[in-house]
Design a protein around this nucleic acid. Structure first.
Lengths: 156, 156
DNA sequence: ATCATCGGTTGCGTGACGAAACCGATGTGC
DNA sequence: GCACATCGGTTTCGTCACGCAACCGATGAT
């Protein structure tokens, strides 16, 4: 993106200066889904390695991801969401629900978000449809939906 | 964006194939804020005219905006959000609130979203903080916040 | 007759991105 | 002792999306 800045006094514009580059939000989605390692994310997204490297560095710099060594010799890293990153959950839920509603398969959504405590589906505002609780990232889990491709189930 | 597609079975990825190009979300923000004409949006964003033209055409094609002539001879157009476009409101609210929390001025947010009916502030899930009602785009209005630059007030 | 407004389109240059090769540190098989 | 695999990148190079400025057609204003 030529000049990723927008130079606008607007919180949406400023958020997009951080999240708006190609791949960035999908990297965050992958980390939300428990993919924490470089090769894992790279293979899942099919993003160019230099671009992924760039995006991860930027997200760490912006305080959205945190890089932790899970072993030394050789040094190997995992990326975790910080508090600030976890707070992007409502945005991710919003994007997911809009896509489910307007762009999904005839079969239905490929992924579903559910409330850990009661198993209810999460609505487009991040509330549990069953018990009505207002949820955060920590309160929910992801599972395959009716539109999930068969290969996903096949892969152990 | 080289190849705006991501080729992923994921509603977030599919949503981003529509919204993820540079400027697209800011164009939608402007229309939410009542800017409906080409030159108005172009001047406000500082986006290149060919790019704006491209984005508007795509958004119409995707069913997010609707192009209406407000006069003929010479033909002049305005862009409106469709139902599908208005349903992006929770996403916009999410982006705005995250930016307010993590990237805003020391003074506070430049823009505030309020509930038309009771004047309460809108929270990060699109609920009214005063009366607790679950809101949609139609229920809310925008006003300057404490972080709004002085010029905004000056401009009639 | 000239200028302004609106909603674009055209032409050209550059830098973000894509693809693939490479790299360093370590472990594994034989 | 040497090849090969794994992980987390970096380097190199080509191309296409974007930025910028000029232009355009229809009309109204001075």
């Amino acid at each position: 993106m030529l000049n990723r800045e927008y130079d606008q006094v607007c919180s949406i514009a400023r958020t997009l200066e951080v999240l708006g580059e190609r791949w960035t939000i999908l990297v965050i989605r992958d980390v939300f889904n428990g993919k924490r390692r470089f090769d894992q994310i790279q293979e899942n997204l099919g993003v160019a390695r230099n671009v992924l490297s760039n995006r991860l560095a930027r997200l760490v710099e912006e305080g959205i991801l945190e890089k932790r060594a899970y072993q030394e010799r050789p040094a190997r890293y995992e990326y975790f969401l910080t508090r600030q990153g976890l707070d992007l959950w409502p945005v991710m839920i919003g994007l997911l629900h809009w896509g489910d509603r307007y762009l999904a398969e005839p079969d239905g959504p490929p992924m579903l978000i559910r409330h850990k405590a009661c198993g209810g589906a999460v609505d487009d505002r991040g509330y549990c449809e069953r018990c009505g609780e207002r949820l955060t990232a920590r309160d929910a889990f992801t599972e395959y939906g009716p539109g999930a491709p068969a290969e996903w189930h096949a892969a152990a």
